[in-house]
């Protein structure tokens, strides 16, 4: 979400600490949750009104490097992307351990994945008929990209129906209620079970939190740092016999691969 803010003139001058734990509270700011997807800067959710800090390095005007790779490749409507941001942050929220999905870059990670072969099921068996259970996303005649669109929009419609507000502006508890029903397969989504969609959302969220940063997720290896996972290490031969836990510095493929 933070990255939306780079499109958001209201936020461009704010300087914030990227490590801030309270960032999650802001994630409702999601630009343009309403129809039309206009860039309605400053359209904050009720939760974020009190705290309008943003926190990517990209958008601060603080002289930090811009993340040019953070623009949308797959999602055409900003409203869909805003729902995605909220949903992934509910799955993997910011807490005392460290950043949540948004700060880790998960929404852009998912956007990039859906724009590529994974999003259009290039590697899968796609011959019809598509009969039987739709419990898994790959059993659907929709490709993964379409599943995300249908799933996210159904979450929004559910929010309108239940709470008379869109998903992005619903309270955290309301969002969780809807997502729990999706996970429990209680909602109708066209072409896919709600559980199938939810499982895909969950798995891609974890991918984005913990993949090598080359994919645009796990920003600055913060996912790995939280989990004390070292990344691409050539050898553990020197310490594998230790009976104490050994904390190591993180290494990404950018540094590991021969160039």
């Amino acid at each position: 979400m933070a990255d939306n803010n780079s499109n958001n003139p209201k936020n461009t001058n704010e300087v914030t600490d990227p490590g801030r734990r309270s960032f999650v509270k802001n994630t409702g700011i999601a630009v343009g949750g309403v129809a039309g997807g206009a860039l309605l800067g400053g359209l904050f959710s009720s939760r974020s009104k009190n705290d309008s800090n943003s926190n990517t390095a990209a958008d601060k005007g603080s002289g930090k490097e811009k993340r040019y790779e953070e623009a949308r490749m797959y999602f055409t409507r900003i409203a869909d992307f805003a729902i995605l941001e909220q949903a992934v942050e509910r799955i993997f929220p910011e807490d005392d351990n460290g950043p949540g999905a948004i700060e880790l870059g998960v929404p852009y990670y998912i956007d990039k994945q859906l724009a590529g072969p994974y999003g259009s099921n290039v590697g899968d068996y796609r011959q019809g008929p598509f009969i039987g259970s739709k419990a898994a996303a790959s059993d659907s005649s929709l490709d993964r990209g379409q599943i995300f669109i249908n799933g996210l929009r159904t979450m929004d419609a559910e929010s309108q129906k239940r709470f008379d507000t869109n998903f992005v502006k619903a309270t955290e508890d309301q969002q969780l209620e809807i997502m729990t029903d999706f996970a429990d397969d209680k909602v109708e989504v066209k072409g896919i079970s709600s559980k199938g969609f939810f499982n895909l959302l969950r798995s891609t969220t974890l991918e984005g939190a913990y993949c090598d940063p080359l994919y645009g997720g796990n920003r600055d290896m913060k996912g790995w740092k939280m989990k004390e996972y070292p990344g691409a290490i050539a050898s553990y031969a020197h310490m594998i016999e230790e009976d104490q836990f050994v904390k190591m510095d993180q290494v990404s493929l950018t540094d590991y691969q021969p160039k």
Partner: peptide, 16 residues
């Protein structure tokens, strides 16, 4: 649970 606050906290705590 398999997602959300408690999941994140516990999955990180028990990772090792």
């Amino acid at each position: 649970p398999s997602w959300g606050k408690e999941f994140k906290d516990k999955s990180i705590f028990y990772a090792n």
